[in-house]
Simulated scan of single mutants.
Amino acid sequence: MNKPLILVTPTATALPQWEDADYAAVDGGLEILGAAGITPVFACGDFDSLKQPLQPDSLPVGCRILSFPAEKNESDSQLAIEEGIRLGYAPIILAGSLSGRIDHTLANIRLLSWSYPDLILQDDHQQMRLLQPGSHTVSSDWKHISLFALEPSCITLENMKYPLSRRNITPADIYTLSNEVAEGHREGTIVVHSGKVLLAESNLP
């Protein structure tokens, strides 16, 4: 399919705008999409965060419901990601995934780091992506650009305020925090020569 899917969680405060994207709801995200007048392709979860009990006859036409018990091994977000992958969507954007409870945020980061490398975590001020070997661009629209190695990695940073050339970094290193695109450039380049690295982009103060 190669079409973006935006999964809206209950903590989403803004809906990401992606060209030609479909939307789906994670649990109480169903109410957020309803308030925005958007019909999700599916809604997934135990629906314990809804303000009102789920009423099948009040659902938008065309929205499939994937209902699960509250006591389960997977999070609602993970189940929604799995369904998006099964349907062939890419990339999958998890909106509101960096807000709310810290344990849920950490769980989402772990899903990105170890299970779903094409996932994008996003809220209205920041996002996280996983960078694997290859060349990647970052935009000057982001004020703060930080990198965190998930395993021993080698990176080069070009057109960045703090450049690096084939620098080895480990999961213990944090000096790659708070970089930015160099003045006079619209984009910077991150080359991952080996390993895998979390990229955090933020416009928060």
Score class of each variant (00 low, 15 high):
F47R: 05
D76P: 08
A172N: 14
K143G: 05
P60G: 05
R64N: 09
G45I: 03
P40C: 01
W18V: 00
I92E: 02
H125E: 00
I169M: 09
S115I: 10
F47G: 10
P56V: 02
S153R: 00
A24P: 15
G96V: 07
I155K: 08
A36V: 07
I190P: 00
C63P: 15
P205I: 00
L199K: 10
D173V: 10
N168K: 11
D20F: 07
V8M: 10
L131H: 08
T137H: 13
H136W: 15
R167N: 06
F68N: 04
D20V: 02
T13K: 15
Q55E: 14
K161L: 13
I65G: 08
L131W: 06
G195Q: 07
L87V: 01
P4A: 03
G34H: 11
P53V: 11
T156A: 02
H104S: 14
R186T: 08
L15Y: 13
H144Q: 13
S97Q: 02
I92T: 05
L5W: 01
V192L: 08
N179W: 12
Y116R: 01
V192E: 07
Q17A: 14
F42Y: 15
L98R: 04
V197K: 12
P205K: 07
P163M: 02
I190G: 02
S75M: 00
P16D: 03
P4N: 06
S49C: 07
V26C: 04
C63N: 08
A14L: 13
G84W: 01
A182L: 14
P133T: 09
S77Q: 02
I109D: 02
K161T: 14
A200G: 07
D22Q: 12
T9V: 09
K143S: 13
Y89A: 03
I93F: 08
K72L: 09
L33W: 13
I85N: 05
S77Y: 07
S146Y: 10
G37L: 12
S153A: 13
D57I: 06
E183I: 11
L94M: 07
A149Y: 02
E180W: 03
L15Q: 10
Q122V: 10
W142Q: 05
A149W: 04
G88E: 00
L79I: 07
R167K: 14
E74D: 15
K196N: 14
L164D: 03
G195R: 07
G100Y: 01
E187S: 14
L66W: 10
A107V: 02
L130M: 10
Q132G: 03
G37D: 07
I6K: 12
G45F: 11
L79T: 00
E19G: 09
G45P: 12
A21M: 01
S202R: 05
D27E: 05
H125N: 12
T170A: 10
R86H: 13
G100T: 00
K196G: 11
L33C: 13
D173T: 09
L79F: 06
S113H: 11
W142H: 03
Q132F: 01
L111I: 11
S140T: 06
I32M: 03
V61L: 14
Q122H: 07
L33Q: 13
L106V: 14
D76Q: 01
A36G: 08
N73R: 06
I6N: 12
S77N: 03
E183G: 04
L177Q: 11
H136K: 12
